[in-house]
């Protein structure tokens, strides 16, 4: 998630491209910066307020940068009845941040998601795009430590 240039290439100057533009910004920057909001607004000929209104409505977009590693715990119903809340507690304790927050050193962002649709292997935790199934409160801290080894 390096801060790559948000090109808005291939997107027509129409309002219907707003969500696609925000996706591009989120993917490239890891969040949507104020400067990008302004560029999107100009490109699509809408006001900045309109961009913020849509941006803050959807969960996929954030106004704050993510950490270098992203730890996402699925809190869908199946994971819930299999005890994911204890897993989230442990991850929270290990990283020292609440869900939705990033560690002070900018290394980890802890997030929850409503359902990833792999209910059979719940509780599920995704670390930097890699899915881990049947996570327990005991195994959860290891996922974060294992993530540290990566460049």
């Amino acid at each position: 998630m390096a801060n790559e240039e948000v090109t808005l290439e291939g997107l027509g100057p129409e309002r219907r491209e707003l969500i696609a533009a925000l996706h591009e910004a989120q993917d490239r920057e890891g969040y949507v910066s104020a400067g990008t909001v302004l560029r999107i607004a100009r490109h699509l000929r809408v006001t900045e307020t309109e961009v913020y209104s849509v941006l803050t409505f959807y969960k996929a977009f954030t106004l704050k940068p993510h950490g270098r590693h992203c730890v996402t715990a699925c809190v869908g119903t199946a994971c819930h009845v299999r005890g994911v809340s204890r897993v989230v507690d442990e991850l929270s304790r290990t990283l020292g941040v609440a869900p939705g927050e990033t560690t002070l050193d900018g290394e980890y962002t802890l997030e929850t998601v409503n359902c990833l649709g792999c209910c059979a292997i719940g509780p599920v935790v995704v670390v930097d795009g890699e899915y881990h199934g049947q996570v327990t409160p005991q195994s959860a801290p290891g996922l974060v430590k294992a993530g540290e080894a990566k460049p």
Binding site: G76, A78, C115, C119
Partner: peptide, 8 residues
């Protein structure tokens, strides 16, 4: 947009 948590 299968949002129902627990259906996939």
């Amino acid at each position: 947009d299968e949002g129902d948590p627990g259906a996939y």
